[in-house]
Every structure is written in structure tokens, then in C-alpha cells.
């Protein structure tokens, strides 16, 4: 059974080994896997779902936030400010999984074989900061609508930048801050161009390994069982990576302990302690602005969407959109 995989996990990333292991396990089970990377073949992450849906690829790693252009409902799995630690996020993802897959199947002919996060999305700034108040008037890189909503509510100016321009933009001050996970920022060398790390998490940047249903249904029973088992194991491992190595990466970035010979580089950023006031503020903006805006968009393309969210993620996280 052949499988064309397109992935965003490049070799230097923390998530690479888990995926490589899964690919090796699939090869062991008789799959003929050919692997491509988005960046190398010039495909925009935001188009991943379209490519999967047409059958150009059999499996793809999908950045849920960026394919939300084709269906805002999908972003409901990890809205800004809803799940700010990995345990909360896990409960939200598990609650949402069935609704998420049902929607993917019905609209795109696709299903998620593994859903996992990059890790806490935190602030990295190239200027003095001690709390979210300091973001007022700063230029902060944003990549989704709900991120911009949060930033605007904090008084910051969202600057939309394509990924290759983020590092030079931070270096030269086109943007003063960026939001990403400690692992991605460390391997992406962001600490070279920023000084302060504020580990207040606003989301988990949920990703999914999705597969084309025609391909999945074409598998023999044995192959399918092997496939599902491998993906479940990979998902568990990727959650571990998100939970455990982000701490290591953060420690490395901020002059703390850093294992020799690993993928992380030592830097001496200032680690700014997170205040409870700021946590409350993000939660408040989430409820008052991010969730209602999302629900409005979602209802427009998927009537009943709000109710589904309230019954799943909302119930798991103790939130409700009116």
C-alpha cells in the first residue's frame, strides 16, 4: 500500500523523531511511504486540506489554525484563551474529536488520524516587558484572525508577516514580539533576535495528521489496524513532546539547564514571571471577544456550530457561548 505524505516537520524540529518513528513503523507494516515537506515543495500550509481532499496526498500534517479559512469550525478545537495548558487542551481536544472528524468527513472527505499540539504558544519580545500591559502600542506578529482580536484588545498592533520574514522582522524591529511555542522558537533561532520570554500560553497550536478517506477505506483490514495503532502511538508521543520538551526548550532559551547535544541551543533570554492578572485578562478577552467573533463566523458556514462547541469543548472547559 503506497502512501504520499506531506508534512511540516523538518529534521531540526522537536516533533521530527516521533513522526519519523511512525513512518518507519508504517514501512515495517508494508506501507510504501513517500514523504515531502511543505516548505521544500512550495505548498502553503493553508492549502493542506485542499490537497488532501483532492487526493494529491494520502496523509498530511495540517495546521488547524491556518486551514480554518476553508472551514472556521475546525479552529474551534483550540481557540485563543480557551486552553492555556496542555492538560486543559487535551480534555478539549478529546471532547471535540468526534465532531471535528464528522465535519472533516462530511465536508472534505478527510479524517484526522492523530491530533496533537506544538505546545504552549507564548510571547517572545525584543523589548523590555513585565506584563501584557507592556504590549500596548507594540507591533506583534499575528497569523490568525483570533490572534489579531486578542492583540488588538491588548492595545498591540498586529503585524501580519509570512513565516520566512518573521526572523528578520524581529531582528530589525518590523515586529517587536512574536507568539509561538518554546520549542519552535528555540529551533527557529528566535532568541537571537528577542530578549524577553513571557510564558503565558494563549493556545496550543493544534496540528493534525489527516488522511484522505478514500485512501483509508481502501486499506485492507490488517493494514488499517496497523495504521491506526501506529498513529495512536505517534499521537501519544507528540503530546509527550509538547508537554515535556517545551519545558526543556524554555529552560534552554532563558539561560537555564540545557541538555548537551540535543536539538536546543542555549540562550540567555529574560524569563518574565506570569501574573494571575494577565491570565485572567486573556480569559476575559477570550470570552468577551474571541469566542463570540468565532461563533458568528462559524454559524454562517455551519449552522448549529455554536451548540456543538458548547456541548463539547465548552462543556470540557466550563465555558459557554451565548
Amino acid at each position: 500500500q503506497s502512501m504520499r505524505l506531506i508534512t511540516q516537520n523538518q529534521e531540526q524540529r522537536a516533533q521530527y523523531p516521533a513522526e519519523a518513528e511512525a513512518v518507519a513503523a508504517l514501512a515495517e507494516a508494508g506501507f510504501d511511504v513517500s514523504r515531502s515537506e511543505y516548505q521544500a515543495v512550495g505548498i502553503d500550509l493553508a492549502d493542506g486540506l485542499r490537497l488532501l481532499s483532492t487526493g494529491a496526498f494520502d496523509m498530511a500534517t495540517i495546521q488547524v489554525g491556518s486551514v480554518a479559512k476553508d472551514d472556521p469550525f475546525l479552529e474551534g478545537i483550540d481557540l485563543i484563551g480557551v486552553s492555556t495548558n496542555m492538560d486543559d487542551l487535551k480534555s478539549a481536544v478529546d471532547a471535540f474529536r468526534d465532531a471535528f472528524n464528522a465535519r472533516l468527513e462530511e465536508k472534505f472527505g478527510v479524517t484526522a488520524a492523530a491530533i496533537w499540539p506544538f505546545g504552549p504558544q507564548v510571547f517572545l519580545c525584543g523589548a523590555e516587558m513585565s506584563s501584557l500591559d507592556d504590549l500596548d502600542g507594540m507591533k506583534v506578529r499575528s497569523f490568525t484572525a483570533s490572534m489579531s482580536t486578542l492583540l488588538e484588545n491588548l492595545g498591540a498592533t498586529p503585524v501580519t508577516l509570512s513565516f520566512p520574514e518573521v526572523y528578520p522582522a524581529l531582528q530589525r524591529g518590523v515586529a517587536t514580539c512574536g507568539v509561538t511555542s518554546p520549542t519552535s522558537s528555540n529551533t527557529g533561532k528566535w532568541p537571537e533576535v528577542t530578549t524577553h520570554l513571557y510564558p503565558l500560553s494563549v493556545s496550543g497550536s493544534v496540528q493534525a495528521h489527516m488522511v484522505n478517506l478514500d485512501w483509508l477505506n481502501g486499506l485492507s483490514e490488517d493494514a488499517r489496524a496497523a495504521f491506526e495503532e501506529t498513529m495512536a502511538a505517534m499521537e501519544a508521543e507528540l503530546w509527550d513532546v509538547a508537554i515535556n520538551t517545551n519545558g526543556t526548550a524554555q529552560s534552554c532559551s532563558t539561560g537555564g539547564e540545557c541538555p548537551e547535544g540535543g536539538i536546543y541551543t542555549s540562550y540567555d533570554m529574560t524569563l518574565v514571571p506570569v501574573s494571575d492578572d494577565d491570565k485572567a485578562r486573556v480569559a476575559e478577552i477570550s470570552v468577551s471577544a474571541v469566542l463570540p467573533e468565532w461563533a458568528e463566523k462559524c454559524e454562517a458556514s455551519y449552522p448549529g456550530c455554536k451548540q456543538i462547541w458548547n456541548d463539547t469543548v465548552g462543556a470540557a472547559r466550563g465555558l459557554s457561548i451565548d
Binding site: 512550495g42 505548498i43 502553503d44 492549502d47 485542499r50 483532492t54 494529491a56 520566512p164 520574514e165
Partner: peptide, 22 residues
């Protein structure tokens, strides 16, 4: 070498090329 599947994403790729801020 692959078949029709590699031709289907042409429209998506074309839009990606043309709609490129760089």
C-alpha cells in the same frame, strides 16, 4: 510517475504562486 493525483492540485498551486506577498 504518479498520475492524475499530482495534476489535481495545479489550481491550488497556481493561486499560491500568484497570491504571494514576497
Amino acid at each position: 510517475f504518479i498520475g492524475d493525483a499530482m495534476i489535481r492540485p495545479f489550481g491550488t498551486m497556481m493561486w499560491g504562486t500568484l497570491n504571494n506577498f514576497l
